[in-house]
């Protein structure tokens, strides 16, 4: 179940990253919004990982190299604009992918059909913040651009075919680029230049190769479960 693992890990890891904003978001409404998006993603992760095995074991007891998430979602939050850039790239991708999967007959079609409607709100949230920051003050514009550029090198991996997902990846990539380009132009921003994957590692999350910050994130995410196996509320 390579595909369920890849999609499930994307959702799980991004959920954890967004959860890290709790107590740190710039305004209360965003605190709540990011936590709600994280919760949607966690729900998706639970369904997807349960298709593979025990959800808790998969989330808490796997080593870094066994995770199949793309490297984009494991990138640290950075400032708020950086997080919004990650949200824009990922939610646009996830909405397009789930929309296609929902129309197929794979084991995750029911989940995709349900989640695509939730993800539409995530993408809408990211687009509105991209507009507001890009077309805001010189400072917010600068930070938004910085976030978009810093994460651009991780977007190529999103369109590496995932075994078990019967979608036209090239068409998905083109539609993604058109949508992101349109959102950025409306926000007075430009599409970053440069390669969409790094020569060193970007593009390998699906093969279990991750970036340095991921290990630290996993240590925090898995610590409680590993220290107190079977703990419950």
């Amino acid at each position: 179940m390579t595909a369920a693992l890849a999609l499930g890990d994307d959702a799980l890891v991004l959920s954890h990253r967004l959860g890290e904003w709790a107590g740190h978001a710039p305004v209360l409404e965003e605190e709540v919004a990011l936590a709600n998006i994280a919760l949607d993603l966690l729900g998706q992760a639970r369904v997807l990982l349960s298709l593979v095995g025990d959800e808790d074991e998969l989330a808490y007891l796997r080593e870094e190299r066994a995770f199949r998430n793309c490297q984009l979602v494991e990138q640290p939050n950075g400032d708020f604009a950086h997080t919004i850039a990650r949200q824009l790239y990922f939610s646009t991708y996830q909405e397009l992918l789930y929309d296609r999967l929902a129309r197929g007959d794979s084991p995750f079609a029911p989940l995709a059909a349900k989640a695509v409607k939730e993800v539409a709100y995530h993408r809408d949230h990211a687009e509105h913040w991209t507009l507001r920051l890009g077309d805001g003050t010189p400072e917010s514009h600068k930070r938004m651009r910085r976030g978009l550029e810093a994460l651009w090198g991780y977007t190529g991996e999103l369109f590496e075919p995932i075994e078990g997902c019967e979608v036209d990846w090239a068409a998905l990539g083109e539609e993604w680029l058109a949508r992101v380009t349109s959102a950025l132009h409306r926000a007075t921003l430009t599409v970053p230049e440069g390669p969409r994957r790094g020569a060193w590692a970007a593009g390998a999350g699906r093969q279990g190769l991750h970036t340095e910050p991921f290990g630290r994130m996993l240590a925090e995410m898995q610590h409680l479960h590993r220290s107190h196996p079977g703990a419950s509320w």
Partner: peptide
Amino acid sequence: LLSRFSSTACKAL
């Protein structure tokens, strides 16, 4: 609209 997400995921503020 103040926020797309409110007290629960199913509500907006």
